[in-house]
Amino acid sequence: MIQTRHFPSCRASIIALLGASLSACVTSRVENVRENSTGIAEGEGIVIMAKSYHLGNETEENFISCVGDSIGRGKAGLRVVPNNEFVDALFPWFEPRTAPAETKGLPTLMSRPGVPEKIREKGVRYVVWLDGDTDKVAGGGSMSCAAGPGGGGCFGFAWWQNDANYEATVWDLSGLEDAGTVSADVSGTSFLPAIVVPIPLIARTQTKACNALADQLRLFIVAQEDDCYGARLRACHRAPARDGNTPNRVPRSLLRGRSTVRARSAAHPGTARRGTPCPRCGRTARRRSSVHPARPA
């Protein structure tokens, strides 16, 4: 009796362990470029949108919902207004054909009747435009399967590589300006060896890109002046605050970068814009560069 009680959990543990050890390799890189300071107050929210398919964008619908769910999840989650609810409320000004392509179009949009009121009613401070997709960039190997009345099986080996490249552009509707962009490039190779039974070792590139982008977006948006949010992750976590006593701590729950994740961003978001000296170190922040690079893996 004792054995039968323990076996299922033991089996499950072994399977989980096996699954974890057999997962395929994924590498990722997350970057952000800040144009203006951000921050979010209570009651304010964001909406995640796909760039228009009229402009050739191919961002998958499930990726958009994944990023929205991920940003809104947990204690540190932001309020995410459902995409279709926002688009319907502002019909027809956020349709694929009519949505502003640049922040230059925001003043015109805000001058339309009922638009500012509706945005205020929905409590949307930031619009995040997603662009990019996941593509299969390489593959090879061969596998053949056969089945008959007496049984079946597969033999062979196949592999393929997926690249997920996404960019999120953040618009601040309160200042009608571009707050910056966050991008995630994730690459993963999946393997499928088969000796009678195929053993899939799937690299979940899109899911990885979704989580990485969502985490970085959340950090990017909640950043306040002189805070370390969004920058350098671990390095920032240790930086002393201005008073020299309490470090500006990034919540541990947000520091989920692994050794394969390299977070690079302009230092001290909010204060260190492109070309301006960083107040803590005296160096100059550059676009897509890192003043305080993430600790090497």
């Binding site: 398919y53 998958e60 619908e61 499930n62 019909f91 027809p92 349709e95 694929p96 054909r97 009519t98």
Partner: peptide
């Protein structure tokens, strides 16, 4: 345009048609 879902293309085709009609409406308004 709408992407095919796991549960088949019916819903995606329906959604694409609705989006095309919304697109027409937006164009007419504009």
């Amino acid at each position: 345009k709408s992407q095919a879902t796991t549960f088949g293309g019916d819903e995606a085709l329906r959604r694409a048609a609705v989006l095309a009609m919304r697109d027409a409406a937006a164009l007419i308004i504009l």
